[in-house]
Design a protein around this nucleic acid. Structure first.
Lengths: 146, 146
DNA sequence: TATTGTTATACTCTATAACTATA
DNA sequence: TATAGTTATAGAGTATAACAATA
């Protein structure tokens, strides 16, 4: 019996009508694209996100960044250290146990590049969406996890 | 200068208007909830997804499941082995190198439980959405990664 | 007592390379 | 030559526990 060349497309996908599944697939595709797009900068998505949040909130502590991005304290330590090692952020003693984080000059430059890369990345995926549909998606997704 | 008790909520989130970011946060929250919900069955989300796909497509090979769910061949091997070890699926020799996968009786029972858990899980997150908004979300997300 | 930062550790999903066997 | 299955390995994100130092 010869294999049906359309066999793969003839398979039934019982997960298709599930929001959680569609979210996961869409998120994975966009995340992979973002990872590739940021690689030339030597940054990963998580690092880039934290960097942009530090730039937007000068003096923020790493605990606060962690709460914003749902990253645990324990995982913020190596993340912050990586950005520091790359010379993108500076830590200023706030009190005996906290540091206020700010972006360095080099960090601000990289932030600009990150924003440009992200903007193009977003455009690649939202080209088929009307501005209204795009905004509606953002709002509905934000409500989903908030 | 005293710390503002509302400092955390006063932080600016520069990622909020990004579709990729909202997708990732929403997906992470739903995935974590599904992981917790399936844990009593001794199954993880990935295993449950593969199991439902095998039930819906009796005789499917693990390569085909991998293509459906965007899981690489190399990662399908231990996944299939785990379902087999748990007695949920059976492998029937198709030819010298492929096995047709089917769910066992126990596997079919577990599939029913998985479907019930997933249905309740979906309901928890879509309670605030109209049926139209729910359907629109599914369609738009599917188009995003297809 | 609670919080911050840190280290160590482990789990899950994902990714690549390489190998065997078969179509 | 291409495909199916497997093994080994590594990376990235995430999770908990435990500890020291400080509020």
């Amino acid at each position: 019996m010869a294999a049906d060349p359309q066999l793969a497309s003839a398979l039934i996908d019982p997960l298709a009508p599930l929001l959680g599944y569609q979210l996961r697939r869409a998120s994975a595709v966009m995340f992979a694209d973002l990872t590739r797009s940021l690689a030339p900068l030597g940054l990963r998505p998580t690092e880039s996100s934290a960097l942009l949040c530090i730039e937007a909130n000068p003096g923020v502590t790493q605990s606060e960044i962690g709460k914003m991005l749902a990253i645990q304290r324990a995982n913020m330590a190596p993340l912050t250290a990586a950005l520091d090692d790359k010379g993108l952020i500076a830590r200023a003693q706030v009190n005996g146990r906290s540091h206020g984080l700010t972006v360095t000059g080099a960090g601000a430059d990289v932030c600009g590049q990150v924003r440009a890369i992200i903007a193009e990345h977003e455009r690649r995926f939202t080209a088929g969406l009307s501005p209204q549909a795009y905004q509606r998606l953002i709002v509905e997704l934000a409500a989903l996890w908030a």
